[in-house]
Amino acid sequence: MSKFQATLRSAVLALGALVFLFPFYYMIIGSLQTKQDASLGGAFPHPSNITGANYSAINDRINLFSGLLNSGIFTAGVLVCTLIFGVLVGYSLAVLQWRGRGVTFALALLVQVVPFQLLIIPLYVLITRTYGLGDNYLGMILPFAINSTAVIIFRQYFLQLPKELFEAARIDGANEFVLLWRIALPLVRPALVTAALLTFIGPWNEFLWPFLITKQASMQPLAVSLANYISNVAATASNPFGATLAGAVVLAAPVVVLFIVFQRYFISTDVGSSVKG
């Protein structure tokens, strides 16, 4: 490997990192500026132009706390359902032999390529009209309740556990719940972290579905209230640039922080295997 090639590779990778990260840097800087400075110098603002006022400005318009709370409830509901029911399916797909196993696995793969958007009209009719779950956390959670990618990740990990482990435990008289809870689950902790992170970003970032079914501002997750601010209100604010970016920082921060904290448990091959099945 020549030195030139190594240098070229580093340059390409560094340029990539710059392109991916700069908008985030600009998001934070912009959220702290008193006055919008779109010039190149604005990317490196003078300390006198730094303020926290944008955060209180956006908070006056869209109540960040209730937005975060709604996003949190929506996301927590999906996480709990996925971690309980997803683990159960993943376990039975990998370890147990039962009729319908193949079909269930095929369904879990198929569901991931069904464009959700085709389903918005019937789901909207069913959930808001038939079940009366508009402006309701249950209605928000239901379409996302069990993340199929997480199911596949759980299955993949349970498959890697040695068969003898389960046979030995069954001979010792352990029932399947004990086996799953005491023996299998502690061994697949990395899968739990990867699947939980992947599941987290779905509802936390989701815009279209909660946008459709929440009409009351007090029920809207942060992504929806921020989007409404961008499309309707921003034009009337004194520093729309700063206030919008402050909202964007609040929306993005939890996911970015979680990922950085847990990224060493997050293994790319998990995600690869999950989609390849």
Partner: peptide, 30 residues
């Protein structure tokens, strides 16, 4: 570092990054 850097846009809500792109690409944007 590279892995985190490349993955962050994918992890972040569209609504949040759209806000930055709106300002980067508007008439008098950077």
């Amino acid at each position: 570092f590279y892995r985190v850097a490349y993955y962050i846009p994918y992890l972040t809500a569209s609504v949040a990054v759209v806000a930055v792109w709106l300002f980067l690409f508007n008439g008098s944007g950077l």
